[in-house]
Amino acid sequence: MIRVVLADDESVVRAGVRMILAADPGIEVVAEAGDGRTLVELVREHRPDVALVDIRMPDLDGLAATTEIRRTVPGTAVLIMTTFGRDSYIARALADGAAGFLLKTGDPREFLLAVRAAAEGGAYLSPRVAARVIGELAGDRLARGSAARERIDVLTRREREVLGLVGAGLSNAEIARRLHLVEGSVKTYVSTILGRLGVRNRVQAAVLAHEAGLADLG
């Protein structure tokens, strides 16, 4: 069972997201919060697999809450929800260690996909958000690509294969099937890759894979 703490300052939104998640019998909302500080307290208390967090909340906004959760409860993956798609929000959320970014106006099925991906150690970007991120990367592709290729020089051939599939959006289980490995080995590879590249999570690793041209391996 995937345990989720849900946070949004609008009770109607929380009720709607709760109903979406209830459609999956493998997901359980264990607690809800209407502000950032209560969210952090509930995450510390319940230690959920995933925290689904609105970007704009009183007392402590979703971005600041993400930073605190990642610092104090690193085992909890954080997914950011918003009605906005501003690039500055996306960049900061990813830099703060968020496992994904969802638009509230997107397809409700994205919530289920995102929660499952985050709980499995993966990452999820709403397609509309991903398009913006890739568009930003395209603005300075040559410089970014050169720097990214230098960074991945520290990886072995197998680690580059795994990174390419992470960039293609595959989960650990999917990567294991693709490369004929056990899932535990993939988790070890991913952990090693993150450490060697100096990135905080799979989203940042995926962006680096795109910059280096490795995501085409997917």
Rank of each mutant, 00 (worst) to 15 (best):
I2A: 10
A176R: 04
G122H: 13
G167N: 08
G36A: 09
E10P: 00
T105W: 06
N172F: 14
R141S: 09
H210N: 12
I175L: 06
R132P: 00
R144T: 06
A15P: 01
I69L: 01
A51R: 11
S146Q: 14
E159Q: 15
G139I: 01
T67L: 03
M1H: 05
H210F: 02
L39F: 09
E28S: 12
R178N: 05
R132F: 00
A123D: 00
D153T: 09
A64L: 07
L170T: 13
A22G: 00
R200V: 15
V129T: 09
E110G: 07
A95H: 02
G62I: 01
S146D: 09
A130S: 07
V129M: 04
G213A: 06
V73C: 10
P25Q: 08
S171M: 15
A206G: 13
D140E: 12
G164L: 02
S171Q: 15
A117G: 11
V186M: 08
R92Y: 06
A118E: 15
L79A: 14
L142I: 04
E159T: 09
L42M: 14
D49S: 08
G121E: 11
D87V: 06
T38Q: 15
V43W: 06
I2M: 14
H180A: 12
A117W: 06
H46P: 03
G100E: 08
I27P: 10
Y189G: 12
E174G: 05
P48E: 10
I152G: 08
G169R: 11
K104W: 03
R3S: 12
L113F: 09
E68S: 04
T66Q: 05
R157S: 07
E110M: 07
A99Y: 05
R149K: 14
D24F: 05
L39M: 11
M19H: 10
A98V: 04
R132G: 03
T192W: 08
A95C: 01
A114S: 13
I134F: 01
G135K: 02
T66D: 11
V190D: 00
A114E: 07
A147R: 09
I55L: 00
G139E: 09
G184V: 05
V12F: 14
F111I: 02
G164A: 04
E120C: 05
V207P: 05
A98R: 07
T82K: 00
M81C: 07
G97W: 11
G85I: 00
E136N: 10
I27V: 15
D59M: 02
K104S: 02
L163G: 07
E174K: 11
Y89M: 02
A118W: 15
A173K: 14
D96A: 08
A123E: 06
R151W: 03
R160F: 06
A77I: 00
K187C: 03
L63R: 02
D216F: 06
R160P: 07
D9L: 04
D9A: 07
I69K: 01
